[in-house]
Design a protein around this nucleic acid. Structure first.
Length: 464
DNA sequence: ATGTCC
């Protein structure tokens, strides 16, 4: 693939002011004219420079016009002295993690923050961090895996089948789930998501459409999993509409794959260029929701979220086809995303990076580990947590540390003890790498009520 | 998290 040979110097020569408009123009042009004639591009840039108002409403070039029409974009934003209000849940969170949140709380656009009890170090906002801001979106505070989410299908299949026909369930996971960088499904059924005109409106999405289609229904790597297990409903709830008791369930954890990752990387980079911040706050660079780029990211993020959701549906559909049974209830939620919400009577943008939305009466699923029970929860709308809860137990040992701490044999022993079958997996994802989920749940009892549990029984992850 | 560094 060719690259447009356009430099900032060329733009200065054309008469562009020496400010952010140069970076933006370079980005837009490189994105839209990867292989086009440079003279054509320069003529177009000259037209935009001389009459930016004519391009102000243009979907593609509007952001260049906007940068030319507003001159102060290069001004470095300072952090404020004081932190906006926040609450930290749980007492097992490192100082470094807390410091990451504290930096976010001093941004001039911040309104309120929180750390969930599973919080640990991330880029910019920690994993398990929640940040409410005013009228901007922070790509890195959504995270690299946009729309990473949980989906639980509760089936009408008798729970005894899990033991009675264990081979069938294992085989279904082995054959019909795809993990890692290269595994994809051989065939796909039509999916509404690929009809969306958003793909054609934003160049980066258009370019990614083929890959998104190819990766549909795959799970990726890291802490992602698909598993069969035992759902137990311990409290009846109209939204679930199931009597108390045990059910066979499918639980999946994954996100928007390469599609969302590329969106996240691209807009994090342009945000960093557009929104210079002191070094410690660089990964909090934001895009205004009154700007073209901000709205573009919001649109792309929304599509990545819907794509992630469609991937889970596809995973569950394939498994259901293989093992039979019908879905009686579905509980699902994003945990890497940004939402427009009202808090304290004011509309804010709430970023949850590794945090489960827990608005009043909102259902969610918080996994434990591959051996420990996860929880079906109902949000309490706790203002202190910005209506949020943890997205799991959280790591107590880093990936690197796990390699020295645990052997494959340690994992095997733990799995045998808990009667769990694991397909794939790695020492980095050892069940012992995670905090005690019960302590995590105790630390957020003001944020969610527990309606039931999910005990994994047959788990598939990336790996041999 | 990510065809894990165009």
């Amino acid at each position: 693939m060719g690259t447009l040979k356009l430099k900032g110097k060329d733009l200065l020569k054309l008469g562009f002011p020496n400010n952010q408009s140069i970076n933006i123009a370079l980005e837009v042009m490189k994105r839209n004219f990867a292989t086009k004639n440079i003279h054509h591009v320069k003529t177009l840039l000259k037209n935009i420079l001389h009459e930016p108002q004519n391009f102000a409403d243009d979907l593609t070039f509007g952001q260049i016009a906007e940068a030319l029409l507003t001159s102060n974009k290069t001004e470095k934003r300072m952090l404020l002295q004081n932190r906006v209000p926040f609450q930290i849940f749980g007492n097992n969170i490192s100082d470094e993690t807390k410091n990451q949140l504290y930096t976010g709380l001093k941004l001039p656009i911040s309104v309120q923050g929180a750390l969930m009890p599973d919080a640990h170090l991330g880029y910019g906002l920690p994993i398990g961090g929640v940040l409410a801001v005013e009228n901007v979106v922070i790509p890195y505070a959504v995270g690299m895996d946009i729309g990473c989410r949980m989906s639980l299908s509760i089936l009408d299949t008798p729970i005894s089948y899990l033991d009675g026909a264990k081979d069938k369930y294992e085989k279904a996971l082995a054959e019909h789930t795809k993990f890692g960088m290269n595994e994809v499904h051989k065939t796909h059924i039509d999916n509404e998501i690929f009809e969306r005109d958003t793909f054609d409106l934003i160049p980066i999405l258009k370019r990614m459409k083929g890959k998104a289609h190819k990766q549909m229904g795959t799970s990726g790597g890291g802490n992602h999993f698909v598993e069969f297990g035992e759902v137990e409903i311990t409290e009846e709830e109209a939204q679930i509409d199931l009597p108390k008791g045990k059910y066979l369930g499918i639980l999946s954890h994954s996100g928007s794959r390469g599609f969302g990752a590329e969106i996240a990387q691209y807009y994090s980079r342009v945000a960093a260029e557009q929104c210079p911040l002191p070094k410690e706050a660089q990964n909090f660079a934001w895009l205004s929701l009154d700007s073209h780029l901000g709205l573009e990211y919001w649109t792309a993020m929304t599509l990545a979220g819907d794509y992630a959701s469609a991937c889970h549906d596809d995973i569950h559909r394939r498994l259901l086809k293989a093992v039979g049974g019908r879905v009686k209830a579905r509980i699902e939620n994003h945990h890497n995303f940004a939402w427009k919400e009202i808090h304290n009577g004011k509309e804010v943008i709430v970023h949850r990076k590794g945090a489960t939305p827990a608005n009043e009466n909102e259902l969610g699923i918080i996994p434990g580990s591959m051996t420990a029970k996860g929880f079906i929860v109902r949000g309490k709308g706790n203002p202190d947590s910005l209506h949020s809860a943890s997205h799991g137990a959280g790591r107590q040992h880093s990936r690197g540390a796990c390699k020295n701490l645990f052997t494959q044999n340690d994992i095997k022993k733990e799995l045998k003890l808990k009667k769990i079958t694991l397909l794939g997996g790695s020492t980095e994802e050892a069940p012992m790498a995670y905090k005690n989920i019960n302590e995590v749940m105790n630390a957020q009892s003001e944020s969610v009520d527990i309606l039931g549990t999910f005990q994994p029984r047959i788990v598939r992850m990336k790996g041999k």
